[in-house]
Every structure is written in C-alpha cells, then in structure tokens.
C-alpha cells in the first residue's frame, strides 16, 4: 500500500524542484520587480512606496515615448514584412522548385546566428564609409547617398532591415510547413494554371493558413518587444536616442542612470504587453491540445 502511495507521489516529487525554481525565479521575480515599480528605488532597491508615481513619470518621459514610438514602427514593419515575405517565399518555394533543398537552408540560416553577429554584419554593410554607399559610388554613381544608419529619422528602418533578414526565413519555414500540411488535391488544383491559381491561393489556401499566421504573429510580436541585442549591436540606440526601444530603455534606466524604479516600471509595461498577446494564445493552444 505504501509502495503504491510512494509511486503516486514520486512524479510530483521529481517535478517539484523545477516547479519551485520557476515559481521563484520567474513568478517571484515578477512580483519583486512589480513591487520595485511602486518604490522610489534608484541605484539600489528601496522600500519607500510611492504609489503609481513611477508609472506617471514613465509615460511623461520623452525618452520612453521615443522608445514606444520606435517599437510601434519597428514592430509593425518587422512583423508585417516578415509575414508577407515569409508567406511569399513559402508559396514560391512550394511550386515544385528545383533546388529547393539548397534555397531553404540559405533563407533560414540567419536564424542560427546571434543578433550581435547580425548587428555587426549589417552595421558595417550599411555604414556610409565602407558599405552600400561606397559600393554603389565605386560603380560610378558618385552622387549616390545611403546613410540611413546615421540619420535620426531613418536609422530605425536599418533595425527593421536587419531584423527581417534574421527572422523572415523562419517565418517562411513555418508557412512552408503549413502549405505542406494542406491536402494534396487542393494544392494540385492550385497548380493547374496561372490565372486561376492566384485566385485559389487568395480565396482558399491562404485562409487555410490562418493558424500559422497566428503562431508567426505571436512569435514575431514577442521577439519585437524583447528586441535588445540587435539594437545594441547595430546602433547602440543611436544616433542620439533615435533607435531606443523599451528593452534598451529599461537597461539604461536601471543600470546606468540609476533610476531603478522607472526601469522596473518599464519592465512591467513590457511584461504586460507580452502577456496580453501570449496568455490568450497559450490558453487556446492548451485547450486545443486537450481535445486531441
């Protein structure tokens, strides 16, 4: 009898250390950061409660407004372009292309790289001194100018370019897997002839990929909000503060500007934004797996 009881308790016992770790290091830490966001912590954590003062302060900061606006521009374009490009490449690759086995890994390999590597490559490739501008000028177009990365209003688009380069192949792979999962008869009909196949894709096949759009959107949105390394490596938030994102804002306010309360507040805002996207998604995914 006690043997059986033991066998029933053992699994829970085995799981409990990881569960305890996650409870402490994830949920405990979230609570603690949440607590700090209501204190006047500066260089070190403080216990002086200040109500919502940090939240009011945060949303009044010009620096934060820049970060939020940039996240809107970056996130919108990054997600949008990755989805469109990923879908397009997947559909094209799915046309019985010769050499698909070569092309697919070429589209996808950037995903294996660190954002710091990606940032380094693009930083110098986009640099007016040695990169694209120089290259095109050396072809004889001496008036050619391309200095987005040094331009306050355009630098954020450089982050978009590098981000899309890194992730769009992954989105392509997701869509391709989706396309390959669609019933062969429908696909065969789609390939029959040119004009009508565009219609077939638009009316039938793309709508069937809805779950992939959702998954890809969730992954991309979550990556956009967390984006930190890419900005650090590519522009370090500059020129000026032109490419500051919430993640870089949080880091600099907490660790270099000694405004830990405001930093914690910005982290809470980031968490809540991600949670608003992820929680409903995970909930529906888990409910879905219950049925099957």
């Amino acid at each position: 009898m006690s043997q059986k009881w033991w066998q029933q308790q053992l699994p829970k016992l085995v799981l409990s250390p990881s569960f305890a770790l996650v409870l402490f290091f994830v949920y405990g830490f979230i609570l603690y950061t949440g607590y700090l966001s209501f204190t006047d912590s500066r260089m070190f954590p403080s216990n002086e409660l200040v109500g919502f003062a940090n939240y009011e302060k945060l949303f009044a900061l010009r620096h934060w407004k820049i970060a939020i606006t940039n996240l809107g521009i970056f996130g919108g374009l990054y997600i949008g372009i990755c989805l469109v490009l990923g879908l397009m490449l997947a559909i094209f690759l799915d046309q019985k292309i010769r050499g698909e086995g070569v092309l697919r890994p070429i589209y996808l390999y950037p995903m294996a790289l660190s954002f710091i590597v990606t940032g380094t490559a693009w930083k110098w490739f986009l640099d007016p001194g040695i990169g694209v501008e120089q290259i095109v000028q050396s072809w004889g177009y001496t008036d050619f100018e391309f200095r987005w990365i040094k331009d306050r209003t355009m630098a954020i688009y450089c982050i978009v370019i590098a981000g899309v380069w890194q992730t769009s192949g992954f989105v392509m792979a997701m869509f391709l897997a989706g396309l390959r999962g669609i019933d062969g008869e429908i696909m065969k009909a789609a390939r029959v002839d040119g004009a009508s196949s565009v219609q077939l894709y638009r009316r039938i096949i793309i709508p069937m990929l809805r779950p992939i759009f959702l998954s890809a959107f969730v992954v991309l949105a979550h990556m956009a909000i967390k984006s930190y390394d890419l900005v650090i490596a590519l522009t370090n938030g500059g020129p000026g503060r032109a490419t500051e994102l919430p993640a870089t804002f949080m880091y600099s306010y907490t660790f270099t500007r000694n405004q830990m309360g405001v930093g914690a507040t910005s982290a809470m805002v980031m968490l809540m934004t991600i949670a608003a996207i992820i929680v409903p998604y995970l909930y529906s995914e888990l409910k879905g797996s219950k049925k099957s």
Binding site: V26, I30, H222, A267, M270
Partner: peptide
C-alpha cells in the same frame, strides 16, 4: 515568453 528585463534586477 517573459521579457527577461523583468528578472534582471532580482536576479
């Protein structure tokens, strides 16, 4: 999926 910024200070 949490943004890791949320754990930096307590960690």
């Amino acid at each position: 999926f949490i943004p890791f910024q949320i754990v930096l200070i307590p960690m």
